[in-house]
């Protein structure tokens, strides 16, 4: 069972959350000036690391806020959490 520390609600059961995928992908700043290679990279390619992964989770059955989580994909340990637009290292 994963216990995810929501920055607003504290540690909550994983069933309250939905996984939102890789948080290192950034939406292109200017969609009109983005090449198809850049769109391909943003939409389809994933680093998919074996180890620490930075990802979004949505506290959908709680406060409904999005958060950023650093989690180990080999142990499922939740290392740090922050608001979606926050910094995981502070």
């Amino acid at each position: 069972m994963l216990l995810i520390k929501c920055p607003w609600c504290g540690e909550r059961d994983m069933v309250e959350f939905t996984h939102g995928g890789d948080a290192t992908k950034v939406y292109p700043k200017d969609p009109n000036a983005t090449t198809s290679e850049e769109w391909h990279d943003f939409i389809y390619l994933r680093e998919n690391p074996c180890g620490e992964h930075v990802e979004y989770w949505h506290h959908v059955a709680g406060c409904r806020q999005w958060l950023k989580v650093r989690r180990d994909t080999t142990t499922h340990d939740i290392l740090t959490t922050a608001p979606a637009d926050g910094d995981l290292d502070t």
Binding site: M1, D13, T18, H19, H53, R71, T73, T74, H76
Partner: peptide, 13 residues
């Protein structure tokens, strides 16, 4: 399970 993992084991929910 719905989240990235290489653990070869899942969770009870």
């Amino acid at each position: 399970e719905g989240y990235n993992s290489y653990a070869q084991r899942g969770n009870l929910p």
